[in-house]
Nucleic acid binder design. Structure first.
Lengths: 194, 194
DNA sequence: CCTAGATCGAACCGATCGGTACGAACTCGA
DNA sequence: TCGAGTTCGTACCGATCGGTTCGATCTAGG
Protein backbone atom coordinates (compact mmCIF):
# COMPACT_ATOMS: atom_id res chain seq x y z
CA UNK A 1 0.00 0.00 0.00
CA UNK A 2 2.45 2.65 -1.21
CA UNK A 3 2.11 6.36 -0.75
CA UNK A 4 0.75 7.94 -3.96
CA UNK A 5 3.36 10.29 -5.33
CA UNK A 6 1.97 11.81 -8.44
CA UNK A 7 -0.65 14.35 -7.41
CA UNK A 8 1.08 17.22 -5.70
CA UNK A 9 3.93 17.99 -3.37
CA UNK A 10 1.79 18.76 -0.36
CA UNK A 11 3.47 18.19 3.02
CA UNK A 12 0.21 17.68 4.87
CA UNK A 13 -0.96 15.19 2.34
CA UNK A 14 2.36 13.37 2.47
CA UNK A 15 2.20 13.22 6.24
CA UNK A 16 -1.32 11.83 6.16
CA UNK A 17 -0.34 9.30 3.52
CA UNK A 18 2.62 8.08 5.56
CA UNK A 19 0.39 7.79 8.61
CA UNK A 20 -2.20 5.79 6.72
CA UNK A 21 0.37 3.50 5.12
CA UNK A 22 2.41 2.91 8.26
CA UNK A 23 -0.56 2.14 10.51
CA UNK A 24 -1.38 -1.38 9.27
CA UNK A 25 2.29 -2.32 8.97
CA UNK A 26 3.11 -1.32 12.54
CA UNK A 27 -0.05 -3.07 13.72
CA UNK A 28 0.83 -6.30 11.98
CA UNK A 29 4.55 -6.39 12.65
CA UNK A 30 4.61 -4.72 16.05
CA UNK A 31 6.19 -1.40 16.95
CA UNK A 32 9.66 -2.88 17.42
CA UNK A 33 9.12 -5.69 14.94
CA UNK A 34 10.07 -3.60 11.92
CA UNK A 35 12.88 -1.13 11.41
CA UNK A 36 12.55 2.33 9.96
CA UNK A 37 14.40 1.36 6.80
CA UNK A 38 12.15 -1.59 6.01
CA UNK A 39 9.08 0.38 6.98
CA UNK A 40 10.02 3.20 4.62
CA UNK A 41 10.78 0.79 1.81
CA UNK A 42 7.44 -0.95 2.35
CA UNK A 43 5.35 2.19 2.17
CA UNK A 44 7.42 3.79 -0.58
CA UNK A 45 8.80 6.82 1.18
CA UNK A 46 12.34 7.92 1.96
CA UNK A 47 13.71 8.02 5.47
CA UNK A 48 14.42 11.71 5.19
CA UNK A 49 10.79 12.49 4.42
CA UNK A 50 9.55 10.36 7.28
CA UNK A 51 11.93 11.97 9.73
CA UNK A 52 11.07 15.47 8.58
CA UNK A 53 7.39 14.86 9.25
CA UNK A 54 7.63 12.89 12.48
CA UNK A 55 11.08 13.68 13.87
CA UNK A 56 11.54 10.31 15.45
CA UNK A 57 10.30 6.77 15.16
CA UNK A 58 8.55 7.29 18.47
CA UNK A 59 6.97 10.40 17.00
CA UNK A 60 5.55 8.34 14.16
CA UNK A 61 4.38 5.66 16.57
CA UNK A 62 2.58 8.17 18.74
CA UNK A 63 0.92 9.81 15.76
CA UNK A 64 -0.19 6.40 14.48
CA UNK A 65 -1.64 5.43 17.83
CA UNK A 66 -3.44 8.74 18.31
CA UNK A 67 -5.00 8.43 14.88
CA UNK A 68 -5.93 4.82 15.49
CA UNK A 69 -7.57 5.59 18.83
CA UNK A 70 -9.57 8.37 17.19
CA UNK A 71 -10.64 6.05 14.41
CA UNK A 72 -11.65 3.21 16.73
CA UNK A 73 -13.64 5.44 19.02
CA UNK A 74 -15.40 7.13 16.11
CA UNK A 75 -16.19 3.71 14.69
CA UNK A 76 -17.70 2.50 17.96
CA UNK A 77 -19.54 5.75 18.61
CA UNK A 78 -21.06 5.64 15.16
CA UNK A 79 -22.18 2.06 15.73
CA UNK A 80 -23.84 3.08 18.99
CA UNK A 81 -25.46 6.12 17.41
CA UNK A 82 -26.85 4.01 14.60
CA UNK A 83 -28.39 1.54 17.04
CA UNK A 84 -31.21 3.78 18.20
CA UNK A 85 -32.08 4.78 21.73
CA UNK A 86 -32.39 1.41 23.46
CA UNK A 87 -29.31 0.87 25.64
CA UNK A 88 -29.51 -2.86 24.98
CA UNK A 89 -29.36 -2.26 21.25
CA UNK A 90 -26.45 0.11 21.78
CA UNK A 91 -24.57 -2.52 23.74
CA UNK A 92 -25.32 -5.05 21.05
CA UNK A 93 -23.96 -2.67 18.47
CA UNK A 94 -20.65 -2.42 20.32
CA UNK A 95 -20.09 -6.15 20.61
CA UNK A 96 -21.35 -6.84 17.11
CA UNK A 97 -18.84 -4.34 15.81
CA UNK A 98 -16.12 -6.05 17.84
CA UNK A 99 -17.10 -9.44 16.44
CA UNK A 100 -16.79 -8.13 12.89
CA UNK A 101 -13.37 -6.81 13.78
CA UNK A 102 -12.31 -10.16 15.25
CA UNK A 103 -13.35 -11.84 12.03
CA UNK A 104 -10.98 -9.78 9.93
CA UNK A 105 -7.84 -11.73 8.96
CA UNK A 106 -5.64 -8.80 9.97
CA UNK A 107 -7.10 -8.68 13.48
CA UNK A 108 -4.34 -8.77 16.06
CA UNK A 109 -5.94 -7.36 19.19
CA UNK A 110 -6.23 -3.84 20.53
CA UNK A 111 -3.42 -1.81 18.99
CA UNK A 112 -3.18 0.48 22.00
CA UNK A 113 -2.92 -2.38 24.49
CA UNK A 114 -0.38 -4.14 22.30
CA UNK A 115 1.64 -0.95 22.08
CA UNK A 116 1.57 -0.41 25.83
CA UNK A 117 2.74 -3.98 26.37
CA UNK A 118 5.54 -3.61 23.84
CA UNK A 119 6.89 -0.11 24.18
CA UNK A 120 7.74 0.98 27.69
CA UNK A 121 7.48 4.68 26.89
CA UNK A 122 5.43 7.12 28.88
CA UNK A 123 3.87 8.76 25.84
CA UNK A 124 2.57 5.43 24.58
CA UNK A 125 1.15 4.50 27.96
CA UNK A 126 -0.55 7.89 28.10
CA UNK A 127 -2.18 7.38 24.71
CA UNK A 128 -3.39 3.96 25.82
CA UNK A 129 -4.80 5.36 29.04
CA UNK A 130 -6.62 8.08 27.15
CA UNK A 131 -8.01 5.51 24.75
CA UNK A 132 -9.40 3.48 27.63
CA UNK A 133 -10.74 6.71 29.11
CA UNK A 134 -12.79 7.35 26.02
CA UNK A 135 -13.84 3.72 25.81
CA UNK A 136 -15.03 3.88 29.39
CA UNK A 137 -16.88 7.11 28.68
CA UNK A 138 -18.76 5.51 25.81
CA UNK A 139 -19.81 2.60 27.99
CA UNK A 140 -20.73 4.88 30.88
CA UNK A 141 -23.20 6.63 28.61
CA UNK A 142 -24.86 3.34 27.77
CA UNK A 143 -24.91 2.28 31.41
CA UNK A 144 -26.46 5.55 32.42
CA UNK A 145 -29.16 5.39 29.79
CA UNK A 146 -29.91 1.85 31.00
CA UNK A 147 -30.60 3.28 34.46
CA UNK A 148 -27.96 1.15 36.09
CA UNK A 149 -27.76 1.54 39.84
CA UNK A 150 -24.06 2.39 39.53
CA UNK A 151 -23.32 3.37 35.94
CA UNK A 152 -19.60 3.88 36.52
CA UNK A 153 -19.20 0.45 38.05
CA UNK A 154 -21.16 -1.22 35.27
CA UNK A 155 -19.22 0.69 32.64
CA UNK A 156 -15.92 -0.41 34.14
CA UNK A 157 -17.07 -4.02 34.17
CA UNK A 158 -18.19 -3.72 30.57
CA UNK A 159 -14.79 -2.26 29.68
CA UNK A 160 -13.07 -5.25 31.27
CA UNK A 161 -15.38 -7.55 29.36
CA UNK A 162 -14.86 -5.82 26.01
CA UNK A 163 -11.08 -5.56 26.25
CA UNK A 164 -10.93 -9.05 27.69
CA UNK A 165 -12.92 -10.36 24.75
CA UNK A 166 -10.58 -8.59 22.35
CA UNK A 167 -7.53 -9.98 24.10
CA UNK A 168 -8.86 -13.52 24.28
CA UNK A 169 -9.92 -13.32 20.65
CA UNK A 170 -6.48 -12.11 19.62
CA UNK A 171 -4.40 -14.59 21.57
CA UNK A 172 -6.57 -17.61 22.04
CA UNK A 173 -9.80 -18.11 20.13
CA UNK A 174 -11.66 -15.52 18.14
CA UNK A 175 -14.71 -17.55 17.14
CA UNK A 176 -17.86 -16.00 18.56
CA UNK A 177 -15.88 -14.09 21.15
CA UNK A 178 -17.89 -10.94 20.50
CA UNK A 179 -21.17 -12.81 20.65
CA UNK A 180 -20.31 -14.53 23.91
CA UNK A 181 -19.12 -11.27 25.42
CA UNK A 182 -22.35 -9.62 24.29
CA UNK A 183 -24.41 -12.19 26.18
CA UNK A 184 -22.31 -11.60 29.28
CA UNK A 185 -22.78 -7.86 28.88
CA UNK A 186 -26.54 -8.34 28.71
CA UNK A 187 -26.47 -10.36 31.91
CA UNK A 188 -24.49 -7.65 33.66
CA UNK A 189 -26.82 -4.97 32.39
CA UNK A 190 -29.89 -6.87 33.54
CA UNK A 191 -28.41 -7.48 36.97
CA UNK A 192 -27.42 -3.84 37.34
CA UNK A 193 -30.79 -2.37 36.38
CA UNK A 194 -32.24 -0.36 39.22
CA UNK B 1 18.80 -10.63 43.13
CA UNK B 2 22.07 -12.27 42.08
CA UNK B 3 22.57 -15.92 41.52
CA UNK B 4 24.23 -17.48 44.58
CA UNK B 5 27.58 -18.80 43.58
CA UNK B 6 29.17 -20.26 46.65
CA UNK B 7 27.35 -23.47 47.44
CA UNK B 8 28.12 -25.93 44.69
CA UNK B 9 28.79 -26.07 40.99
CA UNK B 10 25.57 -27.81 40.09
CA UNK B 11 24.30 -27.21 36.54
CA UNK B 12 20.70 -27.87 37.41
CA UNK B 13 20.84 -25.52 40.33
CA UNK B 14 22.51 -22.88 38.20
CA UNK B 15 19.84 -23.21 35.57
CA UNK B 16 17.09 -22.86 38.12
CA UNK B 17 18.79 -19.86 39.69
CA UNK B 18 19.12 -18.10 36.34
CA UNK B 19 15.48 -18.80 35.62
CA UNK B 20 14.38 -17.41 38.96
CA UNK B 21 16.58 -14.33 38.67
CA UNK B 22 15.71 -13.55 35.06
CA UNK B 23 11.95 -13.89 35.47
CA UNK B 24 11.21 -10.64 37.32
CA UNK B 25 13.67 -8.67 35.18
CA UNK B 26 12.14 -9.80 31.89
CA UNK B 27 8.69 -9.16 33.34
CA UNK B 28 9.53 -5.62 34.38
CA UNK B 29 11.62 -4.56 31.40
CA UNK B 30 9.86 -6.51 28.67
CA UNK B 31 11.29 -9.33 26.60
CA UNK B 32 12.96 -7.02 24.10
CA UNK B 33 13.46 -4.21 26.58
CA UNK B 34 16.71 -5.62 27.92
CA UNK B 35 19.68 -7.12 26.16
CA UNK B 36 21.38 -10.36 27.08
CA UNK B 37 24.50 -8.52 28.27
CA UNK B 38 22.64 -6.27 30.68
CA UNK B 39 20.44 -9.11 31.80
CA UNK B 40 23.46 -11.27 32.61
CA UNK B 41 25.17 -8.44 34.44
CA UNK B 42 22.03 -7.79 36.46
CA UNK B 43 21.61 -11.34 37.64
CA UNK B 44 25.32 -11.97 38.09
CA UNK B 45 25.95 -14.67 35.55
CA UNK B 46 28.16 -14.81 32.49
CA UNK B 47 26.77 -14.92 28.99
CA UNK B 48 28.52 -18.21 28.32
CA UNK B 49 26.75 -19.86 31.23
CA UNK B 50 23.41 -18.52 30.20
CA UNK B 51 23.85 -19.67 26.61
CA UNK B 52 25.03 -23.10 27.66
CA UNK B 53 21.85 -23.63 29.68
CA UNK B 54 19.31 -22.07 27.37
CA UNK B 55 20.98 -22.02 23.96
CA UNK B 56 19.26 -18.86 22.85
CA UNK B 57 17.62 -15.78 24.28
CA UNK B 58 14.34 -17.13 22.96
CA UNK B 59 15.12 -20.39 24.76
CA UNK B 60 15.45 -18.52 28.02
CA UNK B 61 12.29 -16.54 27.33
CA UNK B 62 10.31 -19.69 26.65
CA UNK B 63 11.62 -21.39 29.78
CA UNK B 64 10.75 -18.31 31.83
CA UNK B 65 7.24 -18.16 30.43
CA UNK B 66 6.61 -21.88 30.93
CA UNK B 67 7.73 -21.63 34.53
CA UNK B 68 5.66 -18.54 35.08
CA UNK B 69 2.53 -20.09 33.63
CA UNK B 70 3.01 -23.11 35.86
CA UNK B 71 3.47 -20.90 38.89
CA UNK B 72 0.43 -18.73 38.16
CA UNK B 73 -1.85 -21.68 37.55
CA UNK B 74 -0.65 -23.46 40.66
CA UNK B 75 -1.22 -20.27 42.64
CA UNK B 76 -4.78 -19.90 41.34
CA UNK B 77 -5.56 -23.59 41.73
CA UNK B 78 -4.35 -23.52 45.31
CA UNK B 79 -6.50 -20.49 46.03
CA UNK B 80 -9.52 -22.29 44.61
CA UNK B 81 -8.75 -25.47 46.52
CA UNK B 82 -8.45 -23.52 49.76
CA UNK B 83 -11.81 -21.88 49.24
CA UNK B 84 -13.90 -24.93 50.00
CA UNK B 85 -16.58 -26.52 47.88
CA UNK B 86 -18.91 -23.59 47.19
CA UNK B 87 -18.38 -22.45 43.58
CA UNK B 88 -19.11 -18.88 44.62
CA UNK B 89 -16.36 -18.99 47.20
CA UNK B 90 -14.04 -20.51 44.62
CA UNK B 91 -14.77 -17.69 42.20
CA UNK B 92 -14.22 -15.18 44.98
CA UNK B 93 -10.88 -16.78 45.71
CA UNK B 94 -9.77 -16.29 42.12
CA UNK B 95 -10.63 -12.62 41.94
CA UNK B 96 -9.36 -11.92 45.45
CA UNK B 97 -6.06 -13.45 44.46
CA UNK B 98 -6.01 -11.30 41.34
CA UNK B 99 -6.70 -8.18 43.40
CA UNK B 100 -3.76 -8.94 45.66
CA UNK B 101 -1.62 -9.33 42.58
CA UNK B 102 -2.80 -6.00 41.15
CA UNK B 103 -1.84 -4.32 44.41
CA UNK B 104 1.79 -5.40 44.14
CA UNK B 105 4.03 -2.55 42.97
CA UNK B 106 5.71 -4.82 40.44
CA UNK B 107 2.40 -5.76 38.82
CA UNK B 108 2.55 -5.19 35.09
CA UNK B 109 -0.24 -7.32 33.68
CA UNK B 110 -0.34 -10.91 32.52
CA UNK B 111 3.21 -11.89 31.55
CA UNK B 112 2.00 -14.34 28.92
CA UNK B 113 -0.28 -11.82 27.23
CA UNK B 114 2.45 -9.18 27.34
CA UNK B 115 4.88 -11.63 25.82
CA UNK B 116 2.48 -12.58 23.04
CA UNK B 117 1.93 -8.91 22.25
CA UNK B 118 5.66 -8.20 22.21
CA UNK B 119 7.33 -11.20 20.68
CA UNK B 120 5.88 -12.37 17.40
CA UNK B 121 7.28 -15.87 17.75
CA UNK B 122 5.23 -19.01 17.38
CA UNK B 123 6.64 -20.67 20.48
CA UNK B 124 5.65 -17.72 22.66
CA UNK B 125 2.18 -17.60 21.20
CA UNK B 126 1.85 -21.32 21.86
CA UNK B 127 2.83 -20.93 25.49
CA UNK B 128 0.31 -18.13 25.86
CA UNK B 129 -2.42 -20.21 24.27
CA UNK B 130 -1.66 -23.12 26.57
CA UNK B 131 -1.76 -20.80 29.56
CA UNK B 132 -5.20 -19.57 28.57
CA UNK B 133 -6.20 -23.18 28.02
CA UNK B 134 -5.39 -24.03 31.60
CA UNK B 135 -6.98 -20.84 32.86
CA UNK B 136 -10.15 -21.74 31.00
CA UNK B 137 -10.04 -25.24 32.38
CA UNK B 138 -9.89 -23.93 35.93
CA UNK B 139 -12.88 -21.69 35.34
CA UNK B 140 -14.79 -24.44 33.58
CA UNK B 141 -14.49 -26.54 36.70
CA UNK B 142 -16.00 -23.79 38.79
CA UNK B 143 -18.76 -23.18 36.25
CA UNK B 144 -19.59 -26.88 36.18
CA UNK B 145 -19.75 -27.16 39.94
CA UNK B 146 -22.08 -24.16 39.92
CA UNK B 147 -24.43 -26.10 37.68
CA UNK B 148 -24.31 -23.51 34.95
CA UNK B 149 -26.56 -24.26 32.01
CA UNK B 150 -23.55 -23.98 29.67
CA UNK B 151 -20.38 -24.31 31.73
CA UNK B 152 -18.06 -23.82 28.76
CA UNK B 153 -19.76 -20.59 27.75
CA UNK B 154 -19.73 -19.25 31.29
CA UNK B 155 -16.09 -20.22 31.73
CA UNK B 156 -15.14 -18.41 28.57
CA UNK B 157 -16.97 -15.30 29.70
CA UNK B 158 -15.24 -15.51 33.07
CA UNK B 159 -11.90 -15.84 31.30
CA UNK B 160 -12.60 -12.69 29.31
CA UNK B 161 -13.57 -10.93 32.51
CA UNK B 162 -10.51 -12.06 34.44
CA UNK B 163 -7.98 -11.28 31.72
CA UNK B 164 -9.82 -8.06 30.94
CA UNK B 165 -9.59 -7.05 34.59
CA UNK B 166 -5.88 -7.81 34.60
CA UNK B 167 -5.34 -5.83 31.43
CA UNK B 168 -7.38 -2.84 32.57
CA UNK B 169 -5.63 -2.92 35.93
CA UNK B 170 -2.22 -2.99 34.27
CA UNK B 171 -2.78 -0.27 31.70
CA UNK B 172 -5.44 1.97 33.15
CA UNK B 173 -6.56 1.73 36.77
CA UNK B 174 -5.79 -1.04 39.19
CA UNK B 175 -7.81 0.16 42.16
CA UNK B 176 -10.48 -2.38 43.06
CA UNK B 177 -10.29 -3.91 39.61
CA UNK B 178 -10.38 -7.42 41.07
CA UNK B 179 -13.25 -6.58 43.38
CA UNK B 180 -15.31 -5.06 40.58
CA UNK B 181 -14.58 -8.00 38.32
CA UNK B 182 -15.60 -10.34 41.12
CA UNK B 183 -19.01 -8.69 41.37
CA UNK B 184 -19.46 -9.00 37.64
CA UNK B 185 -18.45 -12.66 37.82
CA UNK B 186 -21.07 -13.26 40.50
CA UNK B 187 -23.72 -11.66 38.33
CA UNK B 188 -22.74 -13.88 35.41
CA UNK B 189 -22.77 -16.95 37.59
CA UNK B 190 -26.20 -16.13 39.00
CA UNK B 191 -27.63 -15.51 35.56
CA UNK B 192 -26.16 -18.76 34.23
CA UNK B 193 -27.46 -21.00 36.99
CA UNK B 194 -29.75 -23.64 35.62
C1' DC C 1 46.68 -34.16 44.18
C1' DC C 2 44.95 -34.06 39.68
C1' DT C 3 41.80 -33.84 36.16
C1' DA C 4 37.16 -32.97 34.01
C1' DG C 5 34.02 -29.67 33.77
C1' DA C 6 31.46 -25.44 35.32
C1' DT C 7 31.93 -20.59 35.50
C1' DC C 8 33.73 -16.00 34.74
C1' DG C 9 35.07 -11.85 32.39
C1' DA C 10 36.19 -9.69 28.51
C1' DA C 11 37.19 -9.37 23.82
C1' DC C 12 35.24 -10.08 19.61
C1' DC C 13 31.96 -10.92 15.49
C1' DG C 14 28.54 -9.65 11.91
C1' DA C 15 24.08 -7.74 11.65
C1' DT C 16 20.82 -4.42 12.53
C1' DC C 17 19.19 -0.50 14.78
C1' DG C 18 17.63 4.73 14.75
C1' DG C 19 19.08 8.74 12.78
C1' DT C 20 21.86 12.06 9.56
C1' DA C 21 23.95 13.98 5.30
C1' DC C 22 23.98 15.03 0.58
C1' DG C 23 23.40 15.45 -4.26
C1' DA C 24 20.00 14.81 -7.91
C1' DA C 25 15.31 15.08 -9.49
C1' DC C 26 11.16 17.09 -9.06
C1' DT C 27 6.88 20.49 -8.27
C1' DC C 28 5.20 24.72 -7.54
C1' DG C 29 4.35 29.82 -7.02
C1' DA C 30 6.18 34.17 -8.50
C1' DT D 1 11.85 30.86 -16.20
C1' DC D 2 13.74 30.79 -11.89
C1' DG D 3 14.28 29.80 -7.09
C1' DA D 4 12.38 27.81 -2.84
C1' DG D 5 11.00 23.77 -0.97
C1' DT D 6 9.85 18.56 -1.11
C1' DT D 7 11.20 14.14 -2.04
C1' DC D 8 14.26 10.30 -3.31
C1' DG D 9 18.07 7.13 -3.04
C1' DT D 10 22.02 5.97 -1.01
C1' DA D 11 25.79 6.12 1.72
C1' DC D 12 27.13 6.67 6.17
C1' DC D 13 27.43 7.07 11.44
C1' DG D 14 27.81 5.32 16.26
C1' DA D 15 25.42 2.27 19.23
C1' DT D 16 23.53 -1.90 20.41
C1' DC D 17 21.97 -6.37 19.43
C1' DG D 18 22.36 -11.77 19.91
C1' DG D 19 25.82 -14.94 19.98
C1' DT D 20 30.82 -17.02 20.06
C1' DT D 21 35.42 -17.71 21.66
C1' DC D 22 39.12 -18.18 24.89
C1' DG D 23 42.12 -18.12 28.70
C1' DA D 24 41.92 -17.83 33.75
C1' DT D 25 39.73 -19.48 37.87
C1' DC D 26 37.36 -22.41 40.69
C1' DT D 27 35.04 -26.82 42.33
C1' DA D 28 34.11 -31.61 42.87
C1' DG D 29 35.08 -36.59 42.49
C1' DG D 30 38.51 -40.22 42.16
Amino acid sequence: MPVPKGSTIDPERTRAAILAAATPVLYERGLDGIGVAELCAGIGVSKETLYRHFGTKDGLVEAVLEARSDRVMRWLSDAVAAAGSDPRDQLSAVFDALQHWYDEPAFRGCAMLNAAAQHHVDAVRAITARHLDRYLELLTGIASRANAADPHLLARQLLMLAEGATTVAAHYDRSNAGEHARRAAFALLSAAAS
